[in-house]
Every structure is written in structure tokens, then in C-alpha cells.
């Protein structure tokens, strides 16, 4: 069981890192999402893997699972969700303002030209 979860986290993280290193915003968003999935599973597993155990204290059980990582994961999911939504909106804004979906925006030559025209023909 442990090795299965560990491999799943590893595969998700490495796919995420690969996608984050792409030059376009869409794979970037997908990569960050994959990494955040991997983080969520990782955090959850840090309370150790238990099956069918209670998280809340009750009179008729003696074995428990750690409830804290579950609370942490819940917070992390909400934050990652909000951040991904923001990033998608920002990526769309960048796409419309910069003219393409490259993470560095316009090509270098176009940017130089923009600077030159902004300065005017002052020497």
C-alpha cells in the first residue's frame, strides 16, 4: 500500500515539474495543478496510512487515524483551488495583452521595438 501511494506521489510530482518547465501558460497551469494534487496526497499520508479508523474520539474504539493532516489537506485544497483559478484568469489576461501564451510574453525583438517607439526618436 505504502509503495503504491509513494509511486503515485512521485509520478504526479515529476509530471507536474515537467509541465511547469514548459514555456506555455496552459501546460504550466496543468503542471501546478498536478503538483498540488501530489502535495495533497503527500500531506494526507504524513498522518500514516490507516484504513477504516475513526478520526474523532469515541467511547467504543481505541484505534484512531490522525485528524490533523486531514484538516491541513482541506485548507491546502481550498488555497490551491483559489490560486489555480487566479492563475487561469491571469494567463488569459496575459494571452490577450501580450498577444501569445508564452510565459515571457512577446518575443524579445517585439519588446525592444516597443521600447524604442515609446522613447520616440530622441537620439
Amino acid at each position: 500500500m505504502e509503495w503504491l501511494v509513494a509511486i503515485a506521489i512521485g509520478v504526479m510530482t515529476s509530471c507536474g515539474v515537467y509541465l511547469v518547465l514548459r514555456a506555455r501558460t496552459f501546460p504550466l497551469v496543468l503542471g501546478l495543478t498536478l503538483i498540488s494534487y501530489a502535495v495533497n496526497v503527500f500531506l494526507f499520508v504524513m498522518g500514516r496510512l490507516q484504513i477504516g479508523e475513526a478520526a474523532i474520539i469515541s467511547a467504543d474504539t481505541t484505534k484512531y487515524t490522525d485528524p490533523l493532516p486531514q484538516a491541513l489537506v482541506l485548507t491546502a485544497i481550498v488555497i490551491a483551488f483559489g490560486m489555480t483559478a487566479f492563475l487561469i484568469v491571469l494567463a488569459l489576461k496575459a494571452r490577450s495583452e501580450l498577444g501569445n501564451d508564452h510565459v515571457d510574453g512577446m518575443s524579445y525583438v517585439a519588446e525592444e521595438q516597443e521600447k524604442k517607439t515609446a522613447v520616440g526618436d530622441s537620439k
Binding site: A91, E97, G105
Partner: peptide, 9 residues
């Protein structure tokens, strides 16, 4: 926007 995108990512 360009600088912001880098910062956010």
C-alpha cells in the same frame, strides 16, 4: 502583466 505572471508562478 508579464512581470506579474512570473511572480505568481
Amino acid at each position: 502583466t508579464k512581470g506579474g505572471l512570473h511572480y505568481v508562478v
